[in-house]
């Protein structure tokens, strides 16, 4: 199953409903909600952290957090 960490730059996914328990409260409060569209904007030069855009929030999170949050990729 894919996670936020497996997205490529510019790729869009949807946060899985079953990810809820793995999203830290803080991230949830910042708009990282199950069902939300999430885009990977940029990866830092040393491959970590990553820069995402979700629900209008532009956030940098570490890969270890991102790897815990499952997503569904839009296979188009």
């Amino acid at each position: 199953m894919s996670t936020i960490a497996s997205l490529h730059i510019g790729e869009v996914g949807y946060i899985s409903e079953e990810a809820l328990d793995f999203i830290p409260l803080k991230l949830l409060e910042m708009g990282c909600l199950p069902g939300a569209e999430i885009e990977l904007v940029q990866i830092a030069p040393l491959k970590d952290p990553i820069y995402i855009c979700v629900n209008g929030s532009h956030l940098a999170i570490r890969k270890e957090t991102a790897a815990q949050i499952k997503i569904l990729k839009s296979d188009i």
Partner: peptide
């Protein structure tokens, strides 16, 4: 260690 930073406009 939890890290989240907003990238403002």
């Amino acid at each position: 260690s939890f890290f989240v930073v907003e990238m403002p406009n």
